[in-house]
């Protein structure tokens, strides 16, 4: 192997791997993973391993990226329950959207007709948190401990009061 260009091509692989490691957003990292797969296929083909290059292109670029895209899409989401009559974009929802963007989550508002169905949805794990109006203020209840910690630091008490509801006891009863 005397060709000089081989060294340049092989040097691209750690470069793109470093780019992948430095990504923080999971979706962006997925796209860079596809890019890494393309460069790995190039390196394999240049070094004479055509079969490995073919496998890398099939699995690395197409299959794993597509499967992980579906996994990211179905997991990194905050489903937030709200009553149908106060679905308009208030300050709370604007703030929540900003917090979700900061943590690379998607924010999805799901409206319910009354208070009972909101609580039932939280118990059945359809939503992670919900907010309802109490006097002039909002009251937010969440069943995820980590979400409670994030919201506690980011949201001021003047906008909403916050409660953590532990559902593990009720789950054990089932």
């Amino acid at each position: 192997m005397t060709e000089t260009y081989v060294y340049f091509i092989v040097a691209l692989l750690p470069l793109s791997a470093l780019m992948l490691v430095l990504q923080v957003n999971p979706l962006h990292a997925l796209v860079i993973r596809g890019l890494l797969g393309a460069i790995a296929a190039l390196v394999d083909a240049v070094l004479g391993a055509a079969d490995v290059a073919l496998t890398e292109a099939l699995v690395g670029t197409m299959l794993s990226v597509t499967l992980y895209a579906i996994a990211v899409r179905s997991s990194l989401v905050l489903r937030f329950g709200v009553l149908t009559d106060n679905k308009d974009d208030g300050e709370l929802f604007h703030l929540l959207r900003n917090i979700c963007r900061q943590y690379h989550l998607r924010f999805k508002l799901i409206s319910y007709p009354d208070q009972e169905s909101l609580e039932a949805a939280l118990r059945n794990k359809e939503i992670q948190a919900f907010a309802h109006e109490q006097d002039t203020n909002y009251h937010t209840i969440t069943r995820v401990k980590r979400l409670y910690e994030i919201l506690e630091t980011e949201l001021s008490p003047s906008i909403t009061s916050l409660t953590y509801q532990n559902l593990t006891n009720s789950v054990e009863k089932h």
Partner: peptide
């Protein structure tokens, strides 16, 4: 292999 990589790369891109 290059031809297959070319077509599969584009297919994966469109899916994504």
């Amino acid at each position: 292999v290059a031809i297959i990589v070319l077509s599969v790369g584009n297919a994966g891109l469109m899916l994504l």
